[in-house]
Design a protein around this nucleic acid. Structure first.
Lengths: 208, 208
DNA sequence: TGTACATCAGTGAACGCGCGTTCACTGATGTAC
DNA sequence: TGTACATCAGTGAACGCGCGTTCACTGATGTAC
C-alpha cells in the first residue's frame, strides 16, 4: 500500500528520531533494525526503502543528536552580553555534570553517548561524529572567555566526570555523586591567570 | 584428554589474559567466546569448564585490568619522598594523555576501555568495575597533593580528554592532538590557591 | 477533469550467519586399593 | 610401588536464537494521456 511522499518522509524522520534515542541509550550494536522500526511504528522490512544499511542510519542519527547539541551551545555562544553569556555557560556546565544528567536513561550529549562506540567502529558514523565534535567544540570555545586551550581542557573535565559518574551510577551512588560534585567545584573555582591566554586566543582564531 | 591441574589453571589464566586484551580493544559484545578461546590457544567447547558464562569472564577480565592499573597508581602513591612522588604523578598524567596512549589499539586504562560498556550493561562486570574504580581513585588521591575533590576533577579531565581524543583519533588527527595538548597544558598549569583545600582533605580522610 | 498504468513505501516470510551455550565423547590425570 | 577405575579439561558438532538483509507481494499514490 503506497503512501504519500510527505507521509514517507515523516516516517523516515520518525525512524531517525527513534534511532537517536535508542542508540544514545543502548549503543549502536545493542539496538536491532526490527526494534528501531517497531519504535517508529513500522515493520522491519521497509527499512531499506529509507537507508542503504544500518550503518547509514547510525550516521544519520549521530548527526541529528549533534545538531541539537551544537544548536544549544551555539545559542549560548551567540548571546551578546558578556556577563549573560558567561552565566549561561556556567549554568550549562553545571547542568552537564548534574545528577539529573547522570540519571537520564540516555545521555543527551553525543560525546558521552557515542565516543566509545565511534572510537571502535569504522562505519560512516565516525565522520558524522568528527564533524559534529568539531562544530560543537568551536561553539563551546566561542561561548567561553578562557581561550581555546583551556576551554578544551574544561570540556574534557565535563565529559570525563559524566562518563565516570554514569559508569558507577547504579553501583556506587556515593562515589558517582562525589565525582560530579568535584567537577562542579572545578567549574566554580577561580581560574589561574595564565600567561598563555593571549597565545591560545590566537591559536583559536587561526583555526577556521 | 585430561591434563594437569596446573596446566588447566594456566589455560584459564591465558583465557582471562586474552579477554583482558580483546575486551579492552573491542568491547565486551564485539568479542565472541570462540575468538577468546582461540586467542588462548584452545577450542570454544571447553569454555564452560572454566566460566559459568561469558559475563563471568567479563568480570574476571575487568578485575585483572584494574589490578594492573591500581597497582601502577599505588606504586606512585607509595613513594616516600614528596617531590619524587609529585614528579612521578605528573609524568603518569602526561603519559595518560599522550599520543602514544591514544594510538594504542587498546586503552591501558580500564575506565577509558570499559566505562561505556559498563554503564549500559547489568552483568557482574559492573561490580568488578565499581570496586576497581574505588580502589584506583583512592590511590590516585593519595598520590597527589591537592585533596580529594580537586584530584577527582583532575582525573576526570584525563579520562575525558583521552576518550574524546580516541573518538576522533582516526578521523581528525589535528583536533585529537589539540585535545590532548590542552589536557597536558592543564596539568602543567599552576593550581589556584583554594580555600577549600582543608575541608576536602578532611572529606578524603573521612572516607575509608 | 477523468482514466489507465507505472511507481514504490510498507508488509511479513525467509535467507545465511555468527552468537552463547550444550552435549557426547576422548583419554591422560588423579585417586583408591 | 603397582593396578583399576573414576574424574574432568579439552574437542568439535550441534542447539536455538536474533541479527542484518533480501524478497515477492500489496495497493494507494503519482503520472501520462
Amino acid at each position: 500500500m503506497r503512501i504519500t511522499k510527505d507521509q514517507a518522509a515523516e516516517n523516515r524522520a520518525r525512524v531517525v528520531g527513534a534511532a537517536a534515542g535508542l542508540f544514545r541509550e543502548k549503543g549502536f550494536d545493542a539496538v536491532g533494525v526490527a526494534e528501531l522500526m517497531h519504535a517508529a511504528g513500522l515493520t522491519h522490512g521497509g527499512f531499506y526503502n529509507h537507508f542503504a544499511s544500518k550503518e547509514e542510519l547510525e550516521a544519520a542519527a549521530c548527526e541529528q543528536v549533534f545538531e541539537k547539541s551544537v544548536g544549544n551551545i551555539q545559542a549560548i555562544a551567540g548571546i551578546e552580553d558578556r556577563k549573560a553569556r558567561s552565566q549561561a555557560l556556567t549554568d550549562y556546565r553545571r547542568r552537564y555534570v548534574s545528577a539529573k544528567a547522570r540519571d537520564a536513561s540516555a545521555p543527551t550529549c553525543p560525546m558521552t553517548a557515542f565516543a566509545g562506540d565511534v572510537s571502535r567502529q569504522s562505519g560512516p558514523a565516525r565522520e558524522a561524529y568528527a564533524a559534529g565534535l568539531r562544530a560543537y567544540l568551536d561553539a563551546y570555545v566561542r561561548a567561553g572567555e578562557d581561550g581555546r586551550t583551556q576551554a578544551l581542557a574544561e570540556f574534557s573535565t565535563l565529559v570525563g566526570a559524566l562518563t565516570l559518574a554514569r559508569s558507577v551510577g547504579k553501583t556506587d551512588a556515593a562515589l558517582s555523586d562525589e565525582i560530579l560534585a568535584a567537577a562542579r567545584a572545578s567549574i566554580d573555582k577561580p581560574k589561574p591567570r595564565s600567561r598563555r591566554r593571549q597565545s591560545s586566543a590566537i591559536a583559536a582564531t587561526s583555526r577556521p
